[in-house]
Computed example of a mutant assay.
Amino acid sequence: MFHTLADLGVKLSIDDFGTGYSSLSYLRQFPIGSLKVDQSFVSQMCRNPDDATVVSAVISMGKSLKKRIIAEDIETREQYEFLLAQDCGEGQGYYFNHPLAAKEPTALLQTGISLIAD
Rank of each mutant, 00 (worst) to 15 (best):
residue 47 R to I: 00
residue 92 Q to I: 09
residue 19 T to Q: 09
residue 35 L to P: 00
residue 95 Y to H: 12
residue 16 D to V: 03
residue 106 T to K: 14
residue 57 A to H: 09
residue 107 A to D: 05
residue 99 P to I: 02
residue 48 N to L: 11
residue 13 S to C: 05
residue 37 V to Y: 09
residue 110 Q to P: 02
residue 31 P to Q: 06
residue 41 F to I: 10
residue 85 A to T: 11
residue 30 F to G: 02
residue 2 F to M: 14
residue 58 V to G: 00
residue 79 Q to L: 08
residue 98 H to T: 06
residue 43 S to C: 09
residue 117 A to R: 11
residue 88 C to N: 03
residue 40 S to R: 12
residue 1 M to Q: 13
residue 77 R to W: 11
residue 57 A to D: 05
residue 89 G to P: 04
residue 34 S to H: 04
residue 57 A to I: 05
residue 97 N to L: 09
residue 37 V to S: 04
residue 49 P to M: 09
residue 1 M to S: 14
residue 103 K to L: 02
residue 84 L to I: 10
residue 65 L to E: 01
residue 7 D to P: 01
residue 69 I to T: 03
residue 68 R to N: 09
residue 31 P to K: 08
residue 34 S to C: 00
residue 79 Q to E: 13
residue 34 S to Q: 09
residue 44 Q to M: 14
residue 11 K to N: 05
residue 4 T to K: 15
residue 86 Q to T: 00
residue 71 A to F: 10
residue 84 L to F: 06
residue 71 A to W: 02
residue 51 D to K: 02
residue 107 A to E: 07
residue 50 D to A: 14
residue 39 Q to D: 06
residue 98 H to P: 01
residue 109 L to Q: 05
residue 23 S to M: 12
residue 21 Y to I: 09
residue 53 T to R: 10
residue 75 E to T: 06
residue 5 L to E: 09
residue 13 S to A: 11
residue 103 K to P: 01
residue 106 T to C: 06
residue 8 L to I: 06
residue 67 K to N: 03
residue 96 F to E: 09
residue 18 G to S: 10
residue 65 L to M: 13
residue 64 S to K: 14
residue 42 V to K: 07
residue 109 L to G: 01
residue 52 A to P: 00
residue 40 S to T: 13
residue 50 D to K: 13
residue 58 V to L: 02
residue 116 I to S: 08
residue 86 Q to K: 08
residue 111 T to G: 15
residue 91 G to L: 03
residue 72 E to I: 05
residue 72 E to P: 04
residue 24 L to N: 07
residue 89 G to H: 06
residue 75 E to S: 06
residue 39 Q to G: 14
residue 58 V to F: 02
residue 50 D to P: 00
residue 102 A to P: 02
residue 103 K to E: 13
residue 20 G to A: 13
residue 19 T to L: 11
residue 64 S to I: 12
residue 52 A to V: 07
residue 15 D to P: 06
residue 89 G to Q: 11
residue 4 T to W: 13
residue 67 K to L: 15
